[in-house]
Amino acid sequence: MIEAIVFYVFSAVLVASAVMVIFARNPVHSVLFLILCFFNAAGLFVLMGAEFLAMILVVVYVGAVAVLFLFVVMMLDVDFAALRAGYAKYLPVGAAVGVILAAELVFVLAPWAFSPSVPEAIAVPIPDPGQIHNTRALGLVLYDQYVFVFQAAGLILLVAMIGAIVLTLREREGVKRQSIPRQIARTRAEGVETVAVKSRQGVDV
């Protein structure tokens, strides 16, 4: 009974905060509600016994992705009046798009059902949860069975990352940079020069 109560609490908060992500006026509040959303999803994962997925959800989405979201959103100079100015103008278009999307979803989902042969169709049979711990089961599937696919996915992400860096990197002239090896390799002879200055003559530097 307690599990059912906890499930409904998590789900209710999840749905409510998901709604608030859209309806919050302040974008920073939206991001904070999104984080609350992730947390409740993690709670639901724990209830289902998938504690590894729950922790990874918190580490990756809440600990890293949402921090960057918050970072960007906070830096934006949001003018709330300007945001609401076009509200009435865009409302019909937005509503039309929403209705069409909802209708499409209904058309697709209404006749959709699980095939009775799904358990056999899954290439990797689900290991018995009593025998094998779910972190281990995930590891076996990801790193043993599908290791090459996994590596390929990693390579694709690497290419995307390098692409982003190449696109945004620009070399500027005249920027002074610190070079740690050069700094350490400097000797006293290079840096200090003793000059005997004659009176009333000065030095040429």
């Binding site: 984080i35 504690e51 590894f52 580490v59 809440v62 918050l70």
Partner: peptide
């Protein structure tokens, strides 16, 4: 004594930044 204890610690310590960002903003 949960099975993913170290991940839990890592997750919690990665959240510490929120208190600071929220306070600053």
């Amino acid at each position: 004594d949960i099975n993913v204890g170290i991940l839990y610690l890592f997750a919690i310590s990665s959240l510490g930044v929120y208190g600071i960002i929220m306070a600053g903003w």
